[in-house]
Design a protein around this nucleic acid. Structure first.
Length: 196
DNA sequence: TGACCGATGAAT
DNA sequence: TTCATCGGTCAT
């Protein structure tokens, strides 16, 4: 894989900045079955004042404690009892935060992704948070992985299209926060989950 | 112990 | 477009 791997210092910054700059990066899963996708959509979950965040009001639980830990680790949680969502822990030390990866553009290991997803459309492989976890083989076993390691990491991309912002998806329960433009997408990319 | 959460895929 | 599916999470 060419390009520069994102290090701890990249993640240990303001969550909104990290979320925006992650768009266009490559998400790499190395191992027996290598898969790579370009990140085309992220959402920021910022600190203890974001009603949509698991870390809202600073409450620490068994599930969300990773968000309070060292930046640069994977945070994977189960949703609906059947799908997974993949996040990266971000933020300065002492500030909980995470960036949810909502959609990828398949780059490598596409045959493996088709096997795991059982669909025929390439666009259907990774255009949603649960879908991309299936395609990349991300599940509970990936929770807590250090993204500064060799198993799962981001690679910076030099050139890509315009990044645009939009309100986050499916957080109607979060009051005013549902309108905050904390979602970042590659403009006009066909692999985003829900076009803005 | 039980209310709650919201992605996906199939059906309409 | 609607609708069924499910179990972990968390405050009780």
């Amino acid at each position: 894989m060419t390009g520069k791997k994102r290090g701890r210092e990249f993640y240990s910054r303001d969550t909104l900045d990290v979320a925006e700059q992650m768009v266009g990066d490559l998400l790499v899963r190395d191992g027996e079955e290598n898969t790579v996708g370009k990140i085309v959509e992220t959402e920021a979950y910022v600190g203890d004042e974001d009603p949509a965040s698991h870390a809202y009001q600073g409450k620490v639980t068994d599930r969300n404690e990773l968000m309070f830990g060292t930046a640069g680790h994977a945070y994977v949680y189960l949703i609906y009892g059947m799908y997974h969502c993949f996040n990266v822990v971000t933020g300065c030390e002492g500030e909980p935060g995470a960036v949810l990866v909502r959609a990828l553009e398949p780059v490598e290991g596409i045959d493996i992704m088709f096997e795991r997803r059982g669909v025929s459309e390439k666009r259907e492989l990774t255009n949603g948070p649960g879908k991309l976890c299936m395609a990349m083989g991300i599940d509970d076993g990936s929770n807590g992985l250090d993204m500064c390691g060799d198993e799962l990491y981001l690679v910076e991309r030099e050139a890509h299209g315009e990044v645009v912002t939009a309100p986050r998806v499916n957080i109607d329960y979060a009051g005013d926060a549902k309108d905050w433009p904390w979602r970042f997408l590659l403009e006009d990319n066909r692999y985003v989950s829900v076009p803005p």
